[in-house]
Amino acid sequence: MTPALIYGLTGIVVFGIGLFGALCVRDRLRRLLALNLCGMGAAFVLVAGAWRMPPDSADPVPHALVITGIVVLVSATAVALALIRRLHTLESAPEEIPEDTPE
């Protein structure tokens, strides 16, 4: 029993929860969050895989990959949130659009 095993399994379960949420949740914000959970689960497994027994230091390459992944994840989240805001604005005023189109 090592921390790597415990947190690796935690990450896999988090990934599964995120996958289920992405498939079954209707609310857009919540589905985006579920996809974020999937990404975090994958990062967990990478970080757990980089762990070494205490005298040795951890493998830096997966760490660098996860840092890159976190930044890419936040970029994708920001774009998805902008799309959600736009969709919501368009949906909340549906009757306005046909009036304006003849111009």
Binding site: P3, A4, Y7, M40, A43, V47, A48, A50, W51, R52, S57, A58, H63, V66, I67, I70, V71, L73, V74
Partner: peptide, 16 residues
Amino acid sequence: VRLAAPDVALAEAAIG
């Protein structure tokens, strides 16, 4: 942090 990945933990706390 428990997995000896302080850089990743910092990035996650700040960005993620």
